[in-house]
Each structure stands twice: as structure tokens, then as C-alpha cells.
Nucleic acid binder design. Sequence first.
DNA 1: CTGAAAGCGCTTACAG
DNA 2: CTGAAAGCGCTTACAG
Lengths: 339, 339
Amino acid sequence: MVKMSEVAKLAKVSTSTVSRVLSNAPYIAEETRQRVLEAVKSLNYKPNRLASNFRKRSSKTVVVVLPDITNIFFSKIIQGLQTVAKESDYHVLLGDTGNNLQLEKEFIELVKERLVDGLILTTARIPKEEILAASQIMPVVLACEYIDGYDVPTVCIDNIIAARQATEHLINLGHKKIAFITGPLGIILSKDRLDGYRQALLLNEIFIDESLIQEGDFTVKSGYDITMKFLAVESPPTAIFASNDEMAVGAIKAIKQKGFRVPEDIAIVGFDDIPLCNIVEPELTTIAQPRYDIGCQAMEMLLKIIKGDSLERRQIVLPHKLEIRDSCGYKLERREEDE
Amino acid sequence: MVKMSEVAKLAKVSTSTVSRVLSNAPYIAEETRQRVLEAVKSLNYKPNRLASNFRKRSSKTVVVVLPDITNIFFSKIIQGLQTVAKESDYHVLLGDTGNNLQLEKEFIELVKERLVDGLILTTARIPKEEILAASQIMPVVLACEYIDGYDVPTVCIDNIIAARQATEHLINLGHKKIAFITGPLGIILSKDRLDGYRQALLLNEIFIDESLIQEGDFTVKSGYDITMKFLAVESPPTAIFASNDEMAVGAIKAIKQKGFRVPEDIAIVGFDDIPLCNIVEPELTTIAQPRYDIGCQAMEMLLKIIKGDSLERRQIVLPHKLEIRDSCGYKLERREEDE
DNA sequence: CTGAAAGCGCTTACAG
DNA sequence: CTGAAAGCGCTTACAG
């Protein structure tokens, strides 16, 4: 490994000067700069980043903590994160926890050990007090998640409004018996989506039948299983709103298997707008989250915090969009007669 | 930030001893160890990893270079990589190149800059000479890819045999007019799958109709578009083998849209066995790659190289499996009469 | 089993 | 515009 002192010697300058040239510091004589650059090139010098990170007390790396890398939902967020990180010469360390709380904590520890400069949390399973505490001593941004009642920096959509709109879409199509498959209710965004569903029914004076609300776990299988139960009763719902697309796909699978049709017999709405939505039949109506943007803005926010810049807003709410495809059909006269 | 010297002072030992205790070095008096550990706890000391990495000349981090993080194919590999890395206290840096060659090179540079100790390449788009050169001066392992003719450490399946088996599966079901959608032919594993297809036809004395071989790009859309062309001719193929599952899904979409049935009119085989295979209708017959295992073994290999251990084998070929589901149907008498 | 001392390869006030 | 010098916080021969 050739080191900076060798470059300095060859260019007949001090290491201070070499360092300044390489970090684009101002006030370098153009002639000196050239000489250094030539020496760098002729020796094929690569700076030792371990040394420079140590000296600068910064790893120029952030860790993204996620519950499960195999969940396609996060990939666009990660892409956004890395794109913005790259622009500032930051790197992204992978913090897949596999839904393991202990690992989640370990990744947070990495900031204390200076291995990373900051933290993006796309999952917040550990107690919110711990997240709050972490956010007070280190740069932390929540992406998609948020902590109710605290102002931990956050980038997400308004899950309540989004879920209300999705539900109202079904109501507007004439549905009154609308089932809802929640996400795991320990997660705040699952609760929010449930709230949005309830609000829509309330606002439209539709009776809330608690038996039509069932807790899923965001997997295709849970959507399938729960829908099978919905279909087992005498008069099944005419629409199902699932808290994510995978569960919606499971619902479609169950419905078809039981010999019903989507959307003619039962309408389906999902949430997230993952690529799968365009592949299932019928194509899935869903709430699109701007995941790439969420990633970009979360990283922008984090880098600001790391730099010590002030934040104009600590909570950024990005727009979602009801993406209407084929799984809800049109408003049918038939349906109105039914009721 | 409390530092090691403060711990040393409180425990009334030297920093050498603190360092030894924390790194579990042998020959520490139990009593001393306890004293140090107490001091560490009472001061809530966290070692500065930037300092320790620098001093030890190791970042305990490897970078995984991948063409596109939003491609679900890689997620299981990454999961395997990180799981094994974790066991050795290694971290994984995300190297999403977005199919950008320049970025691919930049991630390789990180090893030279000591920011990472080694490299997992799941994509090898840069000239193979460069990869070979890199592998000679730094720890590199190829996952899924390999470099023909060189012994760069590799973990992958045998794509030729796998593709041959998939093709033979169709032949055994009575198909003779089997179309093949390749991956991008600049990639060696795409060529291998094509070779396997050709071998199967050759071995079974089936005429190779070059018009039935079309180059795709691994996207659903390309599978769809190419299949549309296959279907436009007077006597379309009775089976289509796509070089990955996404293209197979695109093929199914096109076939259904044209009013044909899968598998009754046209049988489909994919490659990879991503979760989507269980969701499409009909469920997709495909070649399953042991992606998690590929990730695990690639990381094991890389860590051995980093440690300086010798490798028993530099090329590991893992078993694939023909996963038979519903997209090929059964051998039909009808088909035999047709021919 | 433990400590004193050197040093990893940079960056950064400080001085000029 | 440039250099000498200090020092970042650890680890590791070396000596005892």
C-alpha cells in the first residue's frame, strides 16, 4: 500500500498539501495541485479511508434498518436511500433484522460505536421510548413509520387518510359490506389504516361490523386464510380491503378458489402498489406509496441532521395515490338492488 | 464520548489491558477482567470502531455488488450473505449499481481504499479481465455469475444442465416445438441457459428452429412482447421456456390475452423460482436456485479468503431443482396426435 | 499476566 | 498558499 507520505515526497510537498489537494480544499496553487495529482496518479495512490474516517470522526456511512430484505416493499425505498446517499459520498450499510428485535438494537448500537453516522429506521418494533432516546443522541430518521406523539424525524404518507380514501372508493362503488384485513396491530401504521377504514364507514353511516375486521400479518397466506373465513359465512362481504398488496393477493386467490369472481362478486383493494399489482388477475386497485421518494427524502433529512443543519420540518408527509385498476370493477346497478 | 483511557484509569489498569479484555485475549486474570468490565459498564463505554478498524487495518465489512436492488431475485442471496457475515461480526455494505458499469467499478475501488475487506459480485458486467485482475489483488467471490475459463472464486448452479433439464421436461411431455426466451446474451449465465436448451433439443433429435430463440432482458414486458411475436405466426410453439420467471410471467400474460390457455395450449417453464411463481395462474414450473445457500456459501468463501485460509474448492456448484407446478400440465395424448 | 511505548495514516489548527 | 507538529483512539509487539 502506497501512502500519502510517499505521494508527498514525490511531489515535493508536505502531506498537509497532499491532503488538501485530495479534499479539494481552497487556496492551493494550481501548479502545486498538478504536481500532487501527477504523483498520485504515477504511484496509483488510493487514500486509506479507514485512516481518514478515523481522523475525521465520520464513517460517511449510514445504516438502513429493515425488518426483512426479502420483502419487496422496501427495495424501492432502499434504492432512493442509496441514490441520495451516493450524491453526498455516503454509503449504505445493510441492517436486515429478520424481524429480530435484538438485531434492531445492535444496529442502533453501531452509531454509538461510530461505525455509522446515522440511522434510517423502516421498522420500529423496539419500544418507542428507546427510539425516542436514540433520536435524541444520534441522527435518526423514520421512513414509513412514525412515533405517535413524539417529533422523531419522519418521512411517510398519511395512512389514515389513504385508508379512508380506499374504503370510500369501495363505498362509492356501492359497497356496504366491506371487510378489512389489518396488518399486525402492534405497528402504528397498521392501526392507522384501520382507523382510516373505520372513519370512512362512520362518515358514510355504515355500521361497523367487528367480525369483518381481522388481523393479518402482511403475508399472502394470511390474506388467503382470513378471506376463507370471510367466505365461510352465509352472506359474505361484497368487498375486501387488505392493508397491503400481498394480503390482497391472498384474498383474490381464496375468492377464486371458492368459485367467486373478482371484482364481479367481491371487490378487492390493496395497499402499497408493489409490482405484483400489475401481474395478478385482475390487476389490483391499491394505494400507491411514493416509496422511492420516501427513501430519497428520508436520506436527505438524515444527512442534514448529520451535518448539523436545521430541519424546516421534522415530519414530512408525502402524497399517496389511489391507483384504480381492475379489482373493484364499476358501480353496478345490481349491487344497489342487492342492498 | 468516553474513551478507553478513561476506562483504564477507572479500572486502574493500562489501556493495553482494557483492549485485551474487550477483545477476549487470553491470559487475563479473572479479577482484572471483572474490574475492567465493571468500569466499562459504569462509564457506559463503547469502543470507537473507527479507531479500531483503522488500527487493525480491517473494516470488518464487505460490499455486495448487485445490478438492481429492486430485483427480488437477489434478496434471498443478500439474506444469506448477511446471515453468514453476521456470524463472523462482519457487516454488509450495499452496492446497488443500478446497472451502471461506472458504479460497479467504484464499489470495487472501495476495497483498494480499505473501506471494505472484500467483494461479493452478483453481477459481472465489467470486462472479465478487470474482474480477474481484481480477484488477484483482493478478496472477491462471484455469486451466481462466473468467469469462463478463469478460476475466480465462484458459487453458482450449473445453468447449462438446469436449462437442459427444464427443456427435457417439456420434451418428455411431448413437446417438439419449444420456444426459448433468452436473457441478455452478454451475460454468461444467459448463454449457458441457451446452451442447455440447445443441448436438450440436440440430444433428443429435435430440429433447432432459430426463429424460436429470442433474446429478452429478464423483464415481464420482454417476456410478454416476445411471446406476442411467437403467437403471431401461423403455427405457434406448444411450449415456451423463459430464462427467468418474470419473462415466463410475461409469456403467460400474453398467451392468456391472445385467448390461449396455459398449459392446455401452451406450456411454460421459468427459471429461478421467485415467490411470484406461486402466485401466478397457473403456478409456474421452474428451475429453483438455492439462492439463500448461494449467499451463505459465497460469504463463507469470501471470509475464508479474507482470513487467508486456503480454499478446498474455488468453484462451488450448488444443486438446482426442477420445481414442477401447473404451467406445463401432463403429457397429453392429444399432443402426440398433433405431431 | 500486565504495562510503556510506538504507531496505524491520515487531517487540522496553528503559524508563517 | 504551505509546512511542522500534534493527535485522532485504538492495538500490538516487546519487555518484564
